[in-house]
Amino acid sequence: MDLTFTFEQQQLRNSVQKMLQGCASRSQGAVSGQEVHNQLVEMAILQLAQLEEDSGVEDGMASIVAVMEELGRYRVAEPFLSTFLAARLLAPCIARQIGDIDHCLGIPGSVAIYEPGARYAFDAPSVEAQEQDTGYLLNGTKIAVSACGDPSRFIVSARISESGQENIGLFAVNAEQAGVEMINYPTIDGGQACSLLLEKVELKPEALLCRGDLAKRMITDHVQVASLLLSAEALGLMGRLLELTVEYCNQRRQFDKPIGKFQVIQHRLADLYIHCESIRSLLYAALANYAELSEDTKASIAALKFKVGELGRLAGEVSVQLHGAIGFTEEYSVGKYYKRLMVIDALYGNTDHQLQSYLLAESRSRSTTQ
């Protein structure tokens, strides 16, 4: 198993690093997520949202993982992440219908699959799409939808009722469409989310992107890709936390020496480094298994997301503790990185959910090999 980036992937990573450094220098360190999003769109990074057979880019998922790690270091993954995930669901559909795919992929968007009380049951939506002569009538509520970057469209999962049978479908819904109401609220990591209230939203037949088994497969792929990219972002966040903490421990003096000289502090920093490398190893292993679409893939991604939630929270706690009182202040960046790691843990399955998913996937994998 080759766990190194190719020359092209490393070049892409270097380009993103230079772009982020330029944004940081122009804004005196306060990098804007929207500015980064616009720059990445200009760099055609969203082309990686297409499936490899459509984009012609080999190992495109490894490339976007490298990009997400760099975005995590600057805490500017949104709104690019939401737009990328929405574009990945749209790309197979719009590639067959229109020619100007670059423009469509760059439109800010979000995926709306969370529902009240449903936890992580993404394949059983309660939002209903009633089929009618002119298309579909959408009713229901979605929650925890990313609203970073003022998304102008949503990919909404819904239950389709037809001929006495129920099916599942994915719909493209414009934010300004009649019957669509967004209730915005801030998240603990400084981002923006919204609840999406859908009341008698009339959709044309072409708003249906896919249905049935294809829709279920696309939702499953969406959850796996989102988990991979969030884990890559978490790796960047943890790496930056380690850098900030080492820098502080070398500056903060006690008993006439930097506190980083004390062995107990060095042990904590060494543990923090090991946590980062553990996530890196699991991320690369999950990335290597991703293309197989087997139970082993589900198990490796669940194991990765579980450890991201567990070790990410621990990394945040250690970093705040070693910084002392300044680590608790609102203005200092360490707490903001910690909060983002807590949000990543909750998205697409927290540690409890991922542990159950891992055990289930491992059980199924063993039963198929016997």
Results as ranks from 00 to 15, higher is better:
17 Q>M: 11
47 Q>P: 00
21 Q>D: 14
11 Q>E: 12
307 K>Q: 12
26 R>C: 03
281 S>I: 08
280 R>H: 03
142 K>A: 01
166 E>D: 15
260 G>P: 01
186 P>T: 05
155 I>F: 04
277 E>M: 10
57 V>W: 06
111 V>I: 08
17 Q>C: 08
16 V>N: 12
295 E>G: 03
52 E>Y: 02
72 G>K: 01
84 F>H: 12
181 E>I: 12
330 E>D: 10
357 S>M: 02
122 F>H: 02
271 D>H: 05
163 S>N: 13
13 R>S: 13
319 S>F: 02
31 V>K: 04
206 E>K: 11
99 G>P: 06
124 A>C: 12
53 E>K: 09
86 A>S: 13
199 E>R: 13
160 I>P: 01
295 E>I: 01
156 V>I: 12
118 A>L: 11
70 E>T: 06
65 V>I: 15
188 I>R: 04
122 F>K: 00
25 S>H: 11
335 G>P: 02
350 N>P: 00
146 S>D: 14
130 Q>G: 03
25 S>I: 07
102 D>E: 15
365 S>L: 09
325 A>I: 07
288 A>N: 13
188 I>A: 04
13 R>P: 02
41 V>G: 01
215 A>E: 10
280 R>A: 03
66 A>Q: 12
226 A>P: 00
26 R>G: 01
37 H>V: 02
333 S>E: 15
347 L>I: 12
13 R>D: 05
247 E>R: 08
259 I>F: 03
316 G>H: 01
162 E>T: 09
276 C>K: 11
126 S>Q: 10
205 P>K: 04
13 R>Q: 12
64 I>R: 10
269 L>H: 06
244 L>T: 01
262 F>H: 02
201 V>F: 13
333 S>I: 15
22 G>M: 05
203 L>T: 02
262 F>A: 03
158 A>C: 06
366 R>A: 14
281 S>D: 14
238 M>R: 01
252 R>A: 04
312 G>P: 01
144 A>F: 09
242 L>R: 10
90 L>G: 08
218 M>R: 15
221 D>Y: 02
89 L>K: 08
249 C>L: 10
24 A>W: 04
21 Q>E: 15
185 Y>Q: 10
340 R>C: 03
205 P>D: 06
217 R>N: 15
300 S>L: 07
38 N>S: 12
134 T>R: 10
80 F>R: 06
206 E>C: 08
83 T>E: 09
323 H>V: 00
311 L>E: 07
212 G>H: 10
83 T>M: 07
285 A>M: 13
104 C>L: 14
248 Y>L: 08
128 E>P: 00
